[in-house]
């Protein structure tokens, strides 16, 4: 029963949602809309689960003095301070916006900026033409890197057009192939879940 009930629920709701896409009858559409509203409610609840989860994991880390446990204290303090600022003043509250503008935005930008340094180091050490395929990739990468910025246009006015061709023709062809593969995989996985063949979403419990 422990595995049969979820399969019935998944098949019932999944099949109904699939069919409702093709049948524009009011009753079916209204029911489908109700199910979608439920889903959004459940999704919103996941945020609470996420918050409880992050608190639980970091409290455990602090209690057991695991590696870098001090950072967990900072994380929990920041979490509680931001939550308190949000609850007290609302999303428009001065304190919440102060922290958002002066802490979260600069920290986010800093993390993002670090990428440039690591990419530069990787470009020097790892981007090597070790095979014909890697050489082709490297040539394309160099052309796109230069042609995508104003210095490329300054060097040669035809550079941006060449890059646009690379993006529109070889890149699009490869991406389309990948997308078709992913989509066929998703359809097949969806069918496996609906028909109860794929059961990993239920976890590893026994009957």
């Amino acid at each position: 029963m422990k595995s049969i009930l979820p399969i019935i629920v998944v098949f019932g709701f999944g099949f109904f949602m699939l069919v409702s896409f093709f049948i524009p009858l009011k009753g079916i559409q209204d029911t489908s809309q109700t199910f979608q509203n439920w889903y959004i409610g459940v999704m919103a609840f996941f945020i609470f689960i996420g918050i409880f989860n992050i608190i639980k994991i970091n409290l455990e880390k602090i209690q057991r003095r695991l590696r870098d446990w001090q950072y967990s204290i900072i994380l929990l303090i920041c979490l509680l301070v931001m939550m308190a600022a949000g609850f007290i003043g609302g999303p428009e509250g001065g304190l919440f916006l102060y922290f958002y503008k002066n802490v979260q935005i600069p920290l986010g930008a800093t993390m993002f900026s670090l990428l440039a340094f690591f990419v530069a180091s990787a470009a020097f050490r790892a981007f090597r033409a070790r095979s014909p395929e890697a050489t082709l990739l490297l040539i394309a990468a160099v052309l796109v890197m230069i042609g995508r910025v104003p210095i490329g246009y300054w060097i040669w006015h035809g550079f941006p057009n060449l890059v646009e061709w690379i993006m529109t023709v070889p890149n699009t062809a490869a991406k389309r192939g990948i997308l078709f593969g992913i989509d066929l995989g998703m359809i097949s996985m969806g069918l496996r879940v609906l028909l109860g063949i794929e059961r990993s979403y239920m976890g590893g419990g026994k009957e």
Partner: peptide, 23 residues
Amino acid sequence: GMDSQSIVHALLVLFIILGNVIL
């Protein structure tokens, strides 16, 4: 930011070329 991005991209290309010359 475009001037900075241009110079950094040029620098990256230089690093790639240099890395491959060393290879």
